[in-house]
Amino acid sequence: MTETTEQHRERLVDAAIAVAGADDFGADTWREGLDIYLADLAGPAQLNEIGVGVADDAIVADLANRLRIEAWRKDHPGVAAQEIRQPIIIVGQPRTGTTILLDLMAQDPSNRAPLSWEVERPVPAPQTATYLTDPRIAEAQAQFDLVDAFIPGFAAFHELGAQLAQEDVRIFASEFKSMQHSLQFEVPTYNHWLLHEADLGAAYAWHRRFLQHLQSEHHAERWLLKSPAHLWSLPELMKEYPDAIVIQNHRDPLKVIASLSALGASLREMTTDHFEVTRLAAQYSEDIILGLDRALEARAAGVFETGQVLDVRYQDIRHDLIGAVGRIYDQLGWNLSADAESRMRTFLAAHPGDQGGSLKRYSFAETGLDEGELRERAKAYQDFFDVESEELS
């Protein structure tokens, strides 16, 4: 007998309750997204046996983290009083340098970026005294090491590490309003719901609760956050964090689509036996153009106050990342200390990322997309932000 979506959900919920030892999820705003997601996983995702295991395990883990955070918050009332003041939030299309910019700026001790280990294992709340020695670091690293074993070369696309900064899509996953899900699996109904119908205000409310939890016993001068996904929901982002400073990265969207298709392919090929890169690229091309249009709409609608958003072009940072960080600091009126710059240079030498040519290149032709049509649809964005068109291989 085929399991219904409701039965599937309740089975995973029961498993999460057993793992967490708690049964209070807080607000039930996560349920709609999970049900839509599960229906797609059982249908168009066409998961193989590995894919089913990967998806179910991730859902249980995200539900369990939500339960643990809510239980911790109930036992520690002071968490709710934590203030999130003027976070720095990096946005932009994927594959535009947002990750390396986050990682470099996170080397400045004044900036508190959420690290992968504490996002994956947030309870108990991280403490300053053990922040660099917490045993969860090794546990998380062992899990990340398995990824490259199962998906050879994945780290060349997107480096993973317990003590590397993590992006906000992982936080949104426990609310089941995350673009991570539609990158990893073919879930078209969920993807449409997320981009056009979901209550993203609730997602940002959960995001704040998560940050309050993380900073409750380990503070820094300011939060440094990042996710390309914010591009699609800038009004909701700024409503939740009206004093935020936003850094928006820009790059030729056609180049982005080809690169992102390669990243998605590396994830999906393991979990389904019915993968087609052209179908993946078609989804990404629509999503990327929608995000760029929304970014333009946000500017026209006055979502940002004067000086609240900084624009960073990929062509300006491609060969001088430290210089780009220095210019950002200058625009923000911050001092880039010699110590912070030294830490950044040390990190860059050890983690060159795309600067070292590690990214596998996919030709635009392999996406099956119409270059002329997409170039026309991206014209308004490229003209407004002075984004150069790159050569497509």
Rank of each mutant, 00 (worst) to 15 (best):
F210D: 05
Q212M: 10
S216G: 03
E217H: 12
E217P: 01
E217T: 10
H219N: 08
A220Y: 03
A220I: 00
E221Y: 08
E221I: 05
W223S: 04
L224P: 04
L225E: 03
A229R: 04
H230N: 03
S233Y: 14
L234P: 14
P235N: 10
M238P: 12
M238L: 15
E240R: 11
E240A: 14
E240M: 13
Y241D: 04
Y241T: 02
Y241R: 00
P242W: 13
P242N: 13
A244T: 00
V246H: 02
V246W: 04
V246Y: 01
I247L: 14
I247R: 00
I247M: 08
Q248F: 08
D252I: 07
P253W: 03
L254R: 07
I257M: 11
I257F: 12
A258K: 04
S259Q: 01
S261R: 09
G264A: 10
G264T: 08
G264E: 13
S266D: 06
E269C: 13
E269H: 13
M270K: 15
D273C: 11
H274E: 11
H274D: 13
F275S: 01
E276W: 09
T278H: 12
R279T: 09
Q283E: 08
Y284K: 05
S285N: 07
S285G: 04
S285F: 09
I288W: 06
I289N: 06
I289Y: 02
I289R: 07
L290F: 09
L290T: 01
L290E: 07
G291D: 01
L292W: 10
L292Y: 10
A295W: 00
E297R: 15
E297S: 15
E297V: 14
R299V: 14
A301T: 05
G302E: 05
G302L: 03
V303T: 14
F304E: 02
G307V: 05
Q308E: 10
Q308L: 06
L310D: 02
L310N: 05
V312Y: 02
R313N: 06
Y314P: 08
I317V: 09
R318I: 09
G323N: 06
G326D: 10
G326F: 12
R327D: 14
I328S: 00
Q331L: 12
Q331A: 15
L332A: 08
W334I: 00
N335D: 15
L336N: 11
D339N: 15
A340R: 06
